[in-house]
Design a protein around this nucleic acid. Structure first.
Lengths: 198, 198
DNA sequence: GGTGTCATGTAAACAGTTACATGATTTT
DNA sequence: AAAATCATGTAACTGTTTACATGACACC
C-alpha cells in the first residue's frame, strides 16, 4: 500500500495542490507517512505520467504558480481497486517494548522513571488525537455512513492509545511501583513489592 | 532506535551467531524488523568494527564456519544507554484504516466483506501470538521481575489486537451489518468468537 | 527586519526488503 | 532424489527522512 493510495483518496473528494496534500497527510492520524516533499511531489509526477491524475497550472501574479491536481476516471478505478484488496492486520511499532525487554540494565528507580515517561507520552498522544477528532478537518463525503466511519477511525486511534495506557498502568501496579512510593503517602502496594522486588 | 539495540539486547544474555539472531528477531512479536540477512550481517560487521561486539570463528570440519558473537563491556554500556533514552509513544501502521477511509467507493456488501476479512486477520494474529506466548522462547534472565516483564510484553501485543477486534466488532454493529443479515446463521458464531477471543 | 506561511522542487543519506549466491548437512 | 535447515554473505531496489534551495507575501 503506497502513498499513492492516500493521495488518490484525498483527491477523490477535492482537487488540491501538492502543498495542501502534504499538510493533510502530515496532520492525519492514520496516514502514517511523514508527508515530506520528496515523496509527495515524486508520487504526483509519477501519477501524472501514468494518467491517474491531471493538473491545472494556476499562474498567480508575482507569486509562485500553483498546480492543482485532479483525480481522473482511471485514478478512481485505481482507488477502488486499492480499497478492495485483502485487508492486512495492523502493525505495531513500539520501541518502548524493546527498552522494557532489556530493562534488566536498569535499577528499579530508573525503570520507574521510564514507565512514567512512557505513560506521559501516551497521555499526551491521547490529548492530541482527541483534539484532532474535535476539529476534524477533512472528511470526504458528508453522508451519514461516511461521517460515522471517519469518527470510528478517530476512535480506533484513540482507543489504541487508551489500551496502551491501561496496559502500562497495570504493569506499574504489577511491579509494585505506585506514585505514593516516590513521593506522597505510600500504602499497601509498597509493602507487597518489597517482598518480591527489593 | 536501530536494530543494533535489538542485537545487543539479545546478545546481553547469550552469545549467538548471525543466523540465530536472525531467527530470534524474525520470530519476536515486538522486534519489528523483518530480520533479513542484509541488515543483520551488516549491523554485526559495523558493531564489530566499533567494538560493541567481538566474534569467535568456529571452524567446523567441512561445513561452513560459524561466527559466534559476544557482547563487550562497551556494548553493555551502549545497551544501557539505549534503555535509558526517553521513551517514544507507540506508532500504529494500519493500512486498513485507509481502505476504510475511502470505502465510499464500495457498496455495503463489499464493505462488509472487507470488515469480515479484517476481523479474521486479527483473530488469526491473536491465535498466533497466544501460541508464541505459550512456547515463549527466549527470555534474557530468569528473575521474577524479568519473567513478569516478558509476559507483560506478550500481553501488550495480544491486548493491542484484542482492542482492534473489539473495535471492528463495534464498527460492524454500528453499521448495522451483522452475520445474521448476510445469512451465516450469525448468533452462535458471534457468541462463540467472543468467548474465544475476548 | 525577522519570522512564518504558501508553493515548488532536488540531493543525499539512511533504512529496509526481496532476491540472489554458495555449500554442507539433515530430513522426508 | 528432493526439500528443508544451517550458515554466511552480496546486489539491486524501494521506501523514507532530513536537509537544501528558491522566491513571494503577510504579519508583528
Amino acid at each position: 500500500m503506497s502513498i499513492n493510495f492516500a493521495i488518490l483518496g484525498i483527491l477523490s473528494s477535492k482537487s488540491l495542490t501538492g502543498y495542501e496534500l502534504k499538510k493533510i497527510i502530515q496532520e492525519s492520524p492514520f496516514m502514517y507517512w511523514s508527508g515530506n516533499n520528496n515523496q509527495i511531489y515524486k508520487a504526483l509526477a509519477e501519477m501524472l505520467a501514468t494518467g491517474l491524475v491531471t493538473n491545472e497550472v494556476q499562474q498567480q501574479e508575482g507569486s509562485p504558480s500553483k498546480k492543482i491536481y485532479t483525480i481522473t476516471e482511471t485514478g478512481r478505478e485505481e482507488l477502488r481497486k486499492c480499497a478492495q484488496i485483502a485487508p492486512e492486520p495492523p502493525e505495531f511499532k513500539k520501541t518502548f517494548l524493546m527498552q522494557l525487554a532489556w530493562s534488566g540494565q536498569l535499577n528499579i528507580r530508573e525503570l520507574n522513571a521510564q514507565l512514567e515517561g512512557y505513560e506521559n507520552e501516551i497521555k499526551c498522544q491521547i490529548a492530541l488525537h482527541q483534539e484532532k477528532r474535535r476539529i476534524n478537518t477533512f472528511c470526504p463525503d458528508e453522508t451519514d455512513r461516511e461521517l460515522y466511519i471517519w469518527d470510528m477511525i478517530h476512535e480506533n486511534i484513540i482507543s489504541s492509545y487508551r489500551n496502551e495506557l491501561i496496559w502500562v498502568e497495570r504493569l506499574r501496579q504489577g511491579l509494585g511501583i505506585s506514585y505514593e512510593k516516590w513521593g506522597c503517602t505510600g500504602v499497601l502496594t509498597t509493602a507487597k513489592s518489597r517482598l518480591t522486588y527489593e
